[in-house]
Computed example of a mutant assay.
Amino acid sequence: MSSRIKVIIVDDSAVVRQTVRQALERDSGIEVIAAASDPLFAMGHMQRQWPDVIVLDIEMPRMDGLTFLKKIMTERPTPVVICSSLAENGAAATMQALAAGAAAIITKPKMGVKQFLEGSANDVVQAVKAAARANASRLAPRTVAPKLSVDAMIGAGLGSGSSMVRTTERVIAIGTSTGGTQALEAVLTRLPAVCPGIVIVQHMPERFTAMFAERLDSLCALEVREACHGDRVMPGRALIAPGGKHMMLARSGAQYTVEVVDGPLINRHRPSVDVLFRSCARFAGRNAVGVIMTGMGDDGARGLKEMHDAGAHTIAEDESSCVVFGMPREAIKLGGVDQVLPLDLVAEAIMKAG
């Protein structure tokens, strides 16, 4: 970016405001223009200078963060990074924040917050930088780990799924990140109750994926749930990889199942889209459809190319509808995409291909 990213921090804890501010200001590309104890004070600052990114707590006096987020997204969409506790009530509110248009989540514990944020300073910086690149209008509702490749989880070149070509079972694999909660809702709510089995990786912290799946399940005709090890991939069911775990497609006799496993961060993510996509290339081959949607970085790009090379039909969300056109762009550059489509046409394309 040509100038520094302007950030406002909104949190009722002075310790959090100070710690986050120090973390951000150590990066020369970020400028903290204000730190406010609640949204009403923040709005006073924002009338004078509008930020590029807002770092926002959920539970605050006078106006809670969720109400403030909805107000911002209605009046002037701006990338927001939620910095929230992992308490149950906080987690529920965080899921509502994602639905309302939050760009990213930083989870913080109830105790030892200062030490946690100091140790996660780079994560805070990277979350703000990623949010700054987001297309804010698309967000509005309708420790750098070594960047390991998928080879660290699944060896390359060990099959293409060709042995599966005679099965009638079909699999839809979807990968997404920043902006993906809304994108997945837009796609899954358009799919019928009887559609090929779906496996999904959405970059999301632990404990949030189950609540996200429950919310989608309440909105969709098909069944949506957080995946458990050994779950069957079957028509009318969508399985979402649990936060903090990798999910891989597997074959059990004539049926597809999923393996939910621990493992290193792949492309700095766990779950990783590349892990899912490579397993689909291997065990489903041409019986699969691969879909990559909005997200920062390149996780999933190589895996989608492997699915394409194994005979799968592959789809990427186009730039006009992406919150962040990172993952789809990288997949397109690698030559692994058959169709590039706006979000509102993805579900139809899935059904035609599947």
Rank of each mutant, 00 (worst) to 15 (best):
F116A: 07
F116C: 00
L117Y: 00
E118G: 11
S120V: 00
A121Q: 07
D123P: 03
D123E: 15
V124K: 07
V125L: 00
V125W: 00
A127W: 07
V128D: 02
A130L: 01
A132Y: 10
R133C: 12
A134Q: 01
N135R: 12
A136E: 12
S137R: 12
S137P: 01
R138L: 11
L139G: 09
L139N: 04
A140N: 00
A140C: 09
R142N: 10
T143A: 08
T143C: 04
V144P: 15
A145R: 14
K147D: 07
K147R: 14
L148G: 01
L148D: 06
S149Y: 10
S149N: 11
D151M: 01
D151Q: 07
A152M: 12
A152L: 07
M153Q: 09
M153S: 10
M153C: 12
I154R: 14
G155D: 04
L158Y: 05
L158V: 02
G159L: 04
S160Y: 01
S163L: 15
M164P: 01
M164I: 00
R166I: 08
T168A: 15
T168W: 02
E169A: 15
V171D: 03
I174S: 06
G175I: 10
T176F: 00
T176E: 03
T176G: 04
G179E: 14
G179H: 14
G180E: 02
Q182T: 12
